[in-house]
Amino acid sequence: MLDLINLESYYGRSKALNGITLSIPKGEITGIAGRNGTGKTTLLKTIMGLTDDSSGQIRLSDKDLITCPTHERALSGIAYVPQGRGIIPEFTVRENILMGAFANRAGKRSIPEIVPELFPYLADNMSRPGGVLSGGQQQQLAIARALAAEPDVVLLDEPNEGIQPSIVEEIEAVILRMKDDLGLTVVLVEQNIGFLRRAASSFAMLEKGRVVEAGKIDALSDEMVERHMTI
């Protein structure tokens, strides 16, 4: 589905990804794990075309996106929920969601039908500015925005980071539904190994901008977690 081949990426002249090759299966959740600074966020940014320079191949349904500008990647069906969520504070909840619809390939500019069901709070507060929402609500908003594009692939960067525990469970449930009900391919950067084991079908462990372990989620052993994630 989404195949990364020998992906390298740069911030200015410093190399942040050192040749990542990874196959992300269609309609499943792929977990990306590793310590801080190993290139997890950079990997998602590189797929989205948001680093300064990159080389290698990003094949989505056999089309190579590496030379495409960011908006064309979005229009190819990749949606991005960044770390820090990237909500526009002055935009209302509605406007923030509709912003995602600029990447809708059917040209549909409306709130996705599933949003009120997944995020009742957002549905009830469509006219509030995004900036006044709590961190967890903003995370929901960022996911709703991604869904407005009706994408094939969603890139989620630590969706549970810095969020109150009550919403963590909700977001985890939403991520599972994105796969089960909407049939989306999910690339999930996540530090919580417990959640990864429950949700993901495969994983990749990063270290120094390289994939050091990858495979089916069953192969993710405690020993690997010990070696690559404990500080």
Partner: peptide, 25 residues
């Protein structure tokens, strides 16, 4: 207008605007 919304999105966060399918250039 949707053009205005694109412009305002670019003012605040050009990277996120592009990731939402807005042709920034």
């Amino acid at each position: 207008t949707s053009l205005g919304m694109k412009v305002r999105a670019i003012i605040r966060n050009p990277g996120m605007a592009a990731a939402c399918g807005i042709d920034v250039k």
